[in-house]
Design a protein around this nucleic acid. Structure first.
Lengths: 107, 107
DNA sequence: TATATTAGGTTACGAAACGTAACAAAAAAC
DNA sequence: GTTTTTTGTTACGTTTCGTAACCTAATATA
């Protein structure tokens, strides 16, 4: 049985650096560029690129407020919010199975 | 609220090219190197690398059969099988929301 | 007029990840 | 000794990524 192209495309999208975290961050509600950026150590260049990809996929919408200085808000579409189930399962699995090495292990 | 390190690590792992597909493939049962490789267009070099990372994380085990020629079988651990829920949700979301552009669009 | 301020990018450039293709190991068959 | 087969490994060129400098636009300040 060969791999479903929809699934392959989804894997290809989520299998990109930072994409999952950007979506997870936006699940907490609409946020501006600088707020997303503050959530984890992504570079501005890559965040721009990832948001553009997510916008092209119909997962995120971009809204510009012509204030001074400009404010740009990103929010999930219905398609984007549907990813909550995926992110939720990743969090669930991580809490059950992931181990983190402490920065100062004794003995 | 800051990002849970376990979740961040999980995202970092699954947010690598091919990792999700390798796990998905192994959910169908133990498979040898060449079988996994045939499932999608990953290079041998990267498949070696990804399998080593998954082994280091305790998600996959590697078993060598000293036959001629050698046979190497990879299988998911309990931690790896627990990713079934994540992969399942990705497949679910993909079927509900992903659009695939046809190779020859009429109009 | 000129300069400063600020968010959200964009660009140039070096570093890391990736893809391709040639090669290596090992053991048995010929 | 040569061939065959699977599972890698290495060399090398391409793409992606990270860092830091720069740009834009509107307003405030000097």
């Amino acid at each position: 049985m060969s791999l479903c192209p929809k699934v392959e495309k989804a894997m290809q999208l989520l299998g990109k650096r930072w994409t999952g975290l950007v979506v997870k961050q936006l699940l907490d509600g609409p946020q501006r560029f600088s707020e997303i950026k503050a959530g984890f150590p992504i570079s501005g260049k890559l965040l721009t690129e990832r948001l553009k990809e997510l916008e092209d996929e119909g997962i995120v919408t971009r809204k510009v407020y012509a204030e001074v200085p400009v404010r740009v808000e990103y929010r999930l579409t219905e398609k984007g919010r549907a990813l909550q189930a995926v992110i939720g399962e990743i969090e669930h699995w991580a809490h059950d199975w992931m181990e983190i090495k402490e920065q100062a292990q004794l003995n």
